[in-house]
Simulated assay, not measured.
Amino acid sequence: MDRRLADVEDMIARVALGDRHAFEALYDATSAKLHAVCLSVLKDRPLAEETLQEVFIRVWKNADRYAANGLSPMTWLITIARNRSIDKLRAKKGRPGAAPAEMAEAVPSSAPGPEEMTIRNQQRRMLESCLDEIGSTQAKALRAVYLEGASYAELAQTAGAPINTVRSWLRRGLVQLKDCVSQ
């Protein structure tokens, strides 16, 4: 076994005895590699950093379980990091066996609520009422352009009027609409 691995094995043995300096040295010697393992599984840097801290807590608590058997101590550390990362990944994805419908129920709807729908309906009724009050030429022009998405040129062609006339209809209609809505 190469000297660096023997040093890591020695640090683990000293950590098992509660040696904080050995723990710091173990962290310094192995954290970059273990972080890379966590990151490769999780694909999320903040989550990988959090998981790495949990890995070292486990190492601190379970160092006495490491059996020096001539195999690389890094294998033991990498296994802890990999397993903890997989556990995090599973927890992040949701409960195992949860039906997609159950998971969908937990997602808040982006549809407007009852209060918002009531407000929108009132606004729509007010707009329709005001459009009915203004002249039919301006109301038709406003509906076509602002509610149906027609362009000025399309409206001019449909109405058989010059584009500047259509613009005048729209401008007068908007002024009348503004006056109606502000009452």
Rank of each mutant, 00 (worst) to 15 (best):
L77V: 00
L47Y: 02
T30D: 05
R120N: 09
F56L: 04
M117A: 14
G160I: 05
G149V: 09
A13L: 14
E116Y: 07
S168C: 05
E102G: 07
L26F: 06
L89G: 06
W169G: 01
E50F: 04
S151W: 05
R20V: 08
M117H: 08
Q176G: 12
H21Y: 08
A48W: 00
A159Y: 00
A32V: 14
R167S: 13
A106F: 09
N83A: 13
G97C: 09
A25E: 15
H21A: 14
G173K: 07
L155Q: 03
A13D: 08
A104V: 00
M103P: 05
R20Y: 06
E154L: 01
L177Q: 11
L147R: 15
T165L: 08
G70T: 07
K178P: 00
L71R: 15
V41H: 03
E154C: 02
A101I: 09
L42R: 02
Q122W: 12
T30V: 08
I78Y: 05
K61C: 09
E50W: 08
R3A: 13
V175G: 10
G18L: 12
V107A: 10
R20N: 10
D19A: 06
I86D: 02
A6M: 12
A36F: 02
L39A: 08
D28F: 05
D10V: 05
M11C: 06
E49K: 11
G149R: 07
L89S: 13
A153F: 06
L39W: 10
I163S: 06
T79W: 11
A98W: 01
A63D: 00
R171L: 09
P46G: 10
T30F: 05
C38W: 03
P108Y: 02
A36D: 13
P73Q: 10
T118N: 07
E9R: 13
A99L: 14
D19G: 05
L71F: 13
L26G: 05
Y152E: 12
E154Q: 03
E50L: 08
V107D: 04
R3C: 07
G160A: 10
Y66V: 07
D132A: 15
H35S: 05
G70C: 11
N121C: 09
A98G: 06
G149E: 09
L26K: 01
S109F: 03
F23L: 12
G94H: 10
Q138S: 13
L89C: 07
A153E: 15
M1Y: 04
R171E: 04
K140F: 12
A144I: 07
P108C: 03
R120E: 12
T30R: 04
Q53F: 07
D87S: 05
L47S: 13
C180K: 02
